[in-house]
């Protein structure tokens, strides 16, 4: 079993559906404790003995070893709430939650128009890349609205969220640093008032982590639904009222102290790979609805995602066409389930 790529293997669905009581295993290849039991995932997300991985220190080790500068990677790793702990983390979450609450009404006001516009090509194309041609520009425009940009912020296909991925090489690290530099320059230009208020950190976190979380969740959810409905008209599909798959498949943690849980002994420094994705397959709907996580690092974009999902469903259901086939290829990302291409074909 390759626990590094399980979250994007088709077989994951049957596996998670059949192993609600799977024990915690230690995987030699990744040197991680692997948790795929949804109840244990939730417990461990809230467990005080587990802390976030220190990406800043990892980047510092790389810069020392290869005598190179990675100023943007280092900056971004230091301001992402998902990688922070303690009072700084709490302060960033408070700021971000207040900002998102303040923008919710403005985003909601534009959702229908943006969804209508970006999903319109589905009505005429025989084949379309739902991830790249529809969802990416849709999410790009939503986030440009969210951060009150003076113009649309171009977002590239590469998932900068590989910043959270411990398994990337030097070329990818350098590419991410360069792309973060471009994004920071763009934020400085099109969000000048917010940057002047000292909010560059928050906007960057939203445009990296927020954008990829929403994009990946929408794309993987639609992939799961459409793959199960080949041969069905889109307006005849009963879409769930909650995204059925999370795009943030994995939470990686470090044991900050020695402790025992679920017959497993965790020693300080041990790595733990929590499959958030398994929550989608728990028989209990109340557990399924915790795909946005639990504990101090639960997703701040939950409300926004749940506002966006009905608009996406409405746009899909207003397309009276039969899906004749679907192909999905995933980005090589060890944390997110990010479709690189989601090709949907329709009966002409």
């Amino acid at each position: 079993m390759n626990y590094l790529t399980l979250h994007r293997q088709v077989e994951r669905r049957a596996l998670f559906a059949s192993r609600h009581d799977a024990p915690i295993v230690y995987d030699e290849a990744t040197r991680c404790h692997v948790v795929t039991n949804p109840r244990q995932v939730l417990d461990l997300l809230r467990h005080p003995g587990l802390v976030c991985q220190d990406i800043v220190e990892s980047v510092a080790a790389v810069t020392r070893r290869y005598d190179m500068q990675l100023p943007n990677f280092t900056y971004a790793a230091g301001i992402m709430p998902l990688l922070m702990e303690g009072p700084r983390h709490e302060a960033m979450r408070r700021r971000m939650a207040a900002f998102l609450a303040g923008r919710r009404k403005a985003i909601a006001a534009r959702l229908s128009e943006l969804a209508d516009r970006h999903f319109a090509p589905l009505r005429s194309a025989d084949e379309i890349d739902l991830a790249g041609e529809v969802l990416l520009p849709f999410v790009r425009d939503l986030f440009s609205e969210m951060v009150e940009a003076s113009e649309i912020i171009p977002l590239r296909r590469i998932a900068i969220t590989r910043i959270f991925d411990r398994y990337i090489g030097l070329r990818t690290i350098q590419t991410i640093d360069s792309e973060l530099a471009d994004l920071r320059a763009c934020i400085a230009r099109v969000c000048a008032p917010a940057v002047a208020r000292g909010d560059e950190d928050m906007l960057l976190a939203l445009l990296v982590l927020g954008r990829d979380s929403l994009l990946a969740t929408l794309a993987s959810s639609l992939n799961a639904i459409l793959a199960a409905h080949v041969g069905t008209r889109l307006d005849a599909i009963v879409f769930p009222d909650f995204p059925p798959e999370t795009g943030v498949a994995i939470a990686e943690r470090l044991a900050g102290e020695d402790f025992e849980y679920g017959h497993t002994v965790f020693s300080t420094g041990d790595r733990v790979r929590l499959f958030l994705q398994s929550l989608n397959y728990d028989p209990s709907q109340s557990v399924q609805k915790l795909i946005f996580g639990a504990g101090p690092h639960s997703c701040l974009g939950r409300h926004m995602s749940l506002d966006v999902w009905p608009a996406v469903v409405q746009a899909m259901r207003s397309t009276p066409r039969i899906v004749s086939g679907i192909d999905c290829a995933y980005v090589d990302n060890q944390i997110f389930v990010m479709p690189e291409r989601l090709i949907v074909r329709f009966d002409s």
Partner: peptide
């Protein structure tokens, strides 16, 4: 990471620690 970096230099391919897994 050193193994990956040296392989990238020697082969002009992208080799990542994920590939070693």
């Amino acid at each position: 990471l050193d193994l990956c970096v040296n392989l990238e230099d020697a082969t002009n391919r992208t080799v990542e620690p994920a590939d070693l897994v």
